[in-house]
């Protein structure tokens, strides 16, 4: 084995690959929980590690050791595979997003389309998870997730396309490079697209006001009602990775991604930016009530789709590029 292959394997497995991303996922879950708790005048995680920073990891490990129950009526194969896919898909997408430098681990022209594709697959996984567990609550949750996707998929894609048009490339790394070389962040050029992206990310991650597929008081835990033990641990990991993915995508597409500023390495700027985005998500999820599914879908089509289209038109007209 040459040193080069060894380095690549190290990159994929440790930094900025899987291990680093897992750590980041747990860190951001902690940030999110802590900020939400602070807003609500609570402490949040407190005792596991300094200020409870290890709590998400502890939860994960605890769930791994718990009994894994598969319902009798469930479709065993789909039921087992759904959590695996749910955790793996955002991880795959994260390899495409630049984390430690301007270039991502894997990059090719059109990888933005691939990210869109995987995010659609995620919702499909959710639907399959709900469908395969054959519980009434799971079924309703899965159907709601699919319905919700119909609402936010179009605006989020349009919001992703905006920076791509401006940069003239469908590769996330190229979009980051374009922002850094032209010394402007897309968020200042396309604020509407940024707002649309934030709202749709909330929906994608099933945060309040769009936590409709897992609305606790309505349908217990929605599509994840029947999952337990290892599978639930994977689902939680997948959700944390999704949070990292959403914040990383926002950072790359709108906030110029990992930047070398003076002596600060790019990965630190990346983490500062993503942490800011996570903070914003936590603040937003704290100050709303949950929408109803029909209100959500019609609201998305009434307001967000036209806004996203308007943004694209503005870019075509030369404003915001």
């Amino acid at each position: 084995m040459t040193t080069e292959t060894f380095l690549i394997i190290l990159q994929i497995l440790v930094f900025p690959g899987a291990f680093f991303l897992f750590a980041l996922a747990f860190l951001y879950e902690w940030v999110d929980r802590k900020v939400l708790a602070r807003i609500q005048s609570r402490y949040g995680p407190l005792y596991t590690g300094p200020s409870g920073i290890l709590q998400p990891l502890a939860d994960f490990l605890k769930l791994l050791s718990k009994e894994d129950i598969v319902p009798m009526a469930a479709d065993k194969i789909l039921f087992t595979l759904a959590p695996v896919f749910y955790a793996v898909l955002p991880l795959t997408s994260l390899f495409i997003v630049p984390v430690a430098s301007q270039k991502s681990l894997v990059m090719f022209e059109g990888d933005l389309i691939f990210v869109m594709f995987t995010s659609a697959l995620m919702i499909l996984t959710v639907f399959i998870a709900g469908y395969s567990s054959t519980s009434r609550f799971s079924l309703i949750g899965g159907v709601r997730a699919a319905l919700q996707m119909i609402g936010f998929e179009i605006p989020i894609s349009l919001a992703m396309i905006g920076p791509a048009i401006a940069a003239g490339s469908l590769s996330i790394s190229n979009i980051v490079q374009w922002q850094q070389t032209s010394l402007q962040w897309t968020v200042w050029l396309q604020p509407i697209g940024f707002a649309v992206f934030v709202v749709c990310s909330l929906a994608e991650m099933e945060f309040v006001p769009f936590d409709i597929p897992e609305a606790e008081t309505e349908i217990v835990a929605g599509w994840r009602t029947e999952f337990s033990g290892r599978k639930l641990a994977l689902l939680r990991l997948g959700r944390d990775l999704e949070l990292v993915l959403a914040s990383a995508l926002l950072t790359s597409l709108y906030l110029a991604g990992p930047q070398q500023v003076w002596l600060i390495p790019p990965v630190v700027t990346f983490m500062i930016k993503t942490a800011f985005v996570v903070l914003m998500f936590s603040l937003l999820r704290a100050i709303f009530a949950r929408f109803r599914i029909d209100q959500m879908v019609s609201g998305m089509w009434k307001y967000l789709v036209p806004l996203a289209i308007l943004q694209v038109i503005l870019i075509q007209l030369g404003i915001g590029r």
Partner: peptide
């Protein structure tokens, strides 16, 4: 919410 973010929790 913003005010509370920078204040001590009541718990």
């Amino acid at each position: 919410a913003l005010q509370r973010l920078f204040r001590k929790p009541v718990t």
